[in-house]
Lab assay of single mutants.
Amino acid sequence: CHSECLGNCSQPDDPTKCVACRNFYLDGRCVETCPPPYYHFQDWRCVNFSFCQDLHHKCKNSRRQGCHQYVIHNNKCIPECPSGYTMNSSNLLCTPCLGPCPKVCHLLEGEKTIDSVTSAQELRGCTVINGSLIINIRGGNNLAAELEANLGLIEEISGYLKIRRSYALVSLSFFRKLRLIRGETLEIGNYSFYALDNQNLRQLWDWSKHNLTITQGKLFFHYNPKLCLSEIHKMEEVSGTKGRQERNDIALKTNGDQASCENELLKFSYIRTSFDKILLRWEPYWPPDFRDLLGFMLFYKEAPYQNVTEFDGQDACGSNSWTVVDIDPPLRSNDPKSQNHPGWLMRGLKPWTQYAIFVKTLVTFSDERRTYGAKSDIIYVQTDATNPSVPLDPISVSNSSSQIILKWKPPSDPNGNITHYLVFWERQAEDSELFELDYCLKGLKLPSRTWSPPFESEDSQKHNQSEYEDSAGECCSCPKTDSQILKELEESSFRKTFEDYLHNVVFVPRKT
């Protein structure tokens, strides 16, 4: 048989008469490798580009789960590009990614509803959504962080984005990388972005840091009482949809009607710091009717980097990364020049730590249904340095008659930039024990000054392991946590139920 035959053949030295091919099969003959313009397919066939392209389009058009959109890589027609490569849609070739590779997620039936953290986790790592997304989240724990972890990498949506009755959302900033909504599939009414009845939605994105392009379709905003109209108009300008909307697409009466839409800028007039305090004062603000001013709200939190936005980490279910302080308005003076500047002394802060701070007014709604208010920009203030805590785990070892090696770990709280350490030492008198000992005694162990690591005695271990207080009263049991108490109650309830079950099964009433 021919060298490319495997198993047997019907005619000697003829690659077209093989029972099976050793390498690849091409047009009725066995070959060692697939010549151009053919590609290896499933490690035994040679196919042309049209064959591989037909497989790709067949799966793409069917949208069946589990099928493969075949691509070409290293002269092979394979189910998908290997790690580190992405497909070129024009020629199906796998090309190296520039940075992290995109991950295209194809949605069944063309859309997916995100109504819980669990459903959001199914899209973790996706960068391109081939379909439409509907966000409908009523509640949950730590929602802002969970949504950002699972949806934060999405850069492109081919269909539309719909935010509907998501009472738990305060902001859409968890879509931190969303840059493009194509609108290839539109919501009824030709809408590519749809926001309806979101009672706590206050911000779409921080438009000073976020760009969003909507290729096709219109915007729809109705019944978002805490979303200011200025935020919607800003989205029109940034996304390129200005002029597409009709009169009733953006409701003037049901958007922002319960919001404090600040239209003035508060400026800080005085800032002073110490290692654990920050004193702030800002310019006074009074609405047209000074009785509408209820006070100020001061927001602050630790910020290692200057990239904080107002609604980071917030949701309507209680999660809030900001510390909020309510401040009463100052006494009002008739003389504008003698107006008191409101302020606040922030206490209990960490030394040498940068804080993000902003302040906003708290006002009631005027009778004319106009909203007044003022808010400052987010500023960054760093507390002063102070003395560091003591170095940890000092170790001293003498390696000769004239040297001592000293080692330690950095302090747990540096409280500033540590530039150097101060080492103090003092000579001590020799131990009298060394002169009084009889060095001729056998088995004498000389006193040693070398360091030995501390260890816990058996008594201390027994005390720590004991669940009861000892007789001397030195140790006591740790208080039980809520989960331990709940577990004990469940076990007790189970024992009672099981005992009742045994009584009912074992003891049967005697027939009379």
Rank of each mutant, 00 (worst) to 15 (best):
A374L: 05
L186N: 04
Y380H: 00
F174K: 01
E109A: 14
P330L: 11
L345K: 12
S400G: 06
I188Y: 07
I163K: 04
H341S: 10
N200L: 09
F193S: 00
N399G: 14
V128W: 14
P336M: 03
S321P: 09
Y355T: 00
K350A: 05
T113R: 03
I214K: 01
N224H: 14
N263K: 09
L186G: 08
R164V: 08
K301P: 00
E302C: 03
A120M: 12
R291N: 05
F221I: 15
A251V: 06
V128H: 15
N200A: 12
E236K: 09
L345T: 10
T127G: 15
G139C: 00
P351N: 04
S274P: 00
S260W: 05
S319G: 06
P351E: 04
L406F: 15
E148L: 12
F193H: 01
F296C: 09
L219F: 13
N211Y: 11
F174R: 02
R369V: 07
D377A: 07
S319T: 05
S239R: 13
I214T: 12
Q314R: 10
P330K: 14
G373C: 03
S398L: 02
R138L: 03
F221T: 04
L265E: 12
D257S: 02
K218V: 13
K407H: 07
E264P: 05
G110F: 11
A144W: 08
K337D: 15
F268M: 12
D206R: 10
M235S: 05
T113S: 13
F268L: 10
K162S: 12
E283I: 08
K267A: 08
G343N: 14
R179I: 13
N211E: 14
E283V: 15
R244P: 14
Y160D: 01
A168R: 15
V363C: 02
E236G: 15
L169E: 03
G139S: 05
T215Y: 08
R176A: 04
L349G: 03
N142T: 10
Q314L: 09
E122W: 06
V170R: 05
L331S: 11
E264S: 04
P410T: 09
S396Y: 00
E184W: 07
C261S: 02
G217M: 01
W282K: 00
W322I: 05
S338V: 05
R138P: 04
N255P: 04
S116P: 02
L280S: 06
I188Q: 13
E262L: 05
G256D: 06
V104S: 09
S366P: 14
R138S: 05
R176L: 14
T323I: 14
I232P: 14
G139T: 09
L172E: 00
D335N: 12
A385V: 11
N198C: 06
E156I: 07
